[in-house]
Write a protein that binds this DNA or RNA. Structure first.
Lengths: 212, 212
DNA sequence: TTGTAAACTGCACAATTGTGCGGTTCTTCA
DNA sequence: TGAAGAACCGCACAATTGTGCAGTTTACAA
């Protein structure tokens, strides 16, 4: 039995969804609300698998609603209901913790399928949205795996990481049980490999390349 | 008419796919290959919308195949054929330029739908893969918008950026037409605001928070 | 076994940094 | 009109860093 909660300010849509869910074997609507506030106030004592939330709600927006809901129940599966697949709000919702999107005109069979999907750890969304996400994904991740040919040894990574945590040479030496001069030695090699001449530049380059 | 090319080393599967595509109105198979090399050598004079490519090919792997194919035709829509949705190879394929995934046992109707989707700018993939992508997406993007409450002034950002480029105080001063002591002053304030005590820590924190 | 690479240690010294103190000017906002 | 903050400038000095040079040990591949 998949337990669903609905947050949607339009009465017709909300009741329609609730009726669909309660009318289907294996699904049950355990709560329906017309704003985030009332939903959030009951969330901690609610047994729920999947939340359907309108993205454009009066009062607290759906996006803020996600953030707050995730703080109460981090593993909640939240599906956003949208009218248009506006990429800006989609990304915000994704970052806040939404796991999928449904356009409001989605046919009932698809909708139930999406709810099941979400409850099983999937992320149902249109393939148009998926493509947008992938494009952003590629921009950030892509770079990281691309130009990783600069390889620092494990020890060098340890030293550099420690450095970026704000430790000075002496502190790094103490943490790694080596002498300060050895730390210097590693730093030297790191500078040579990354073609830099200062801590800041090394740390910046390493983070941007995904080395630390 | 959607023009499809197939790269798949298993004869049965390849011929099955070609037959399905050619036997469906609105779809046409314009090429089928059993390795990447022969596909790539013909790609520049091929009129093709969507490529179906096996991810585990003999010789050049599907992943490398994507990279090379994208160099020849950057707008190509490449769908990967996989047996298992192994997250590591999925991510690599995505970064290389794949726009979607099909497990090999996908029913014909879904397969044709996915090809159409891809040709129209979508990214067909299972919602399980989508969730994995989103999780990584959130890790990188999410942080940036989350905790930006620490705000440095424009001048401080300039100083910090210059620092991460490997400039020392004197060089920063020269670039910003201010005195070295003013640079020190800004650095001091940056340290106070970020709660750090060294260049490296400041740069690391700033990059990770998306400030620079 | 010979070579190569990683990891380690040491010394010296100039250059750079971090932080203590003291100020001014300009804008913005209550 | 007066307080607050950004941006600016200055001095002093200890602490830390960057880089020159010269080595040892260990592990693993050719």
């Amino acid at each position: 039995m998949i337990k669903v909660a609905i947050i949607e300010d339009n009465n017709t849509i909300r009741e329609g969804l609730a009726a669909l869910i309660n009318g289907t074997v294996g699904y049950s609507c355990v709560g329906s609300f017309d704003d985030c506030e009332s939903f959030l106030s009951k969330l901690d004592r609610m047994d729920v698998d999947v939340v359907l939330m309108d993205i454009g709600l009066p009062g607290m927006s759906g996006i803020d609603g996600i953030t707050k809901a995730k703080k109460i129940k981090p593993d909640l599966n939240i599906l956003m209901l949208t009218v248009y697949e506006d990429s800006q709000s989609v990304f915000k919702a994704l970052c806040a913790g939404a796991c999928g999107f449904l356009v409001k005109k989605t046919p009932p069979s698809r909708l139930l399928e999406a709810i099941k999907d979400a409850s099983e750890g999937g992320a149902p969304m249109s393939s148009l949205i998926a493509r947008q996400v992938i494009n952003v994904f590629r921009q950030t991740q892509g770079k990281i795996s691309e130009e990783k040919e600069t390889d620092l040894s494990t020890r060098e990574i340890e030293v550099l990481t420690s450095l970026s945590d704000g430790n000075n040479y002496q502190e790094i030496a103490d943490r790694l049980f080596i002498s300060v001069d050895t730390v210097r030695h590693h730093i030297r090699n790191i500078y040579r490999k990354l073609h830099v001449h200062s801590q800041s530049e090394a740390v910046a380059k390493a983070i941007r390349k995904g080395l630390i």
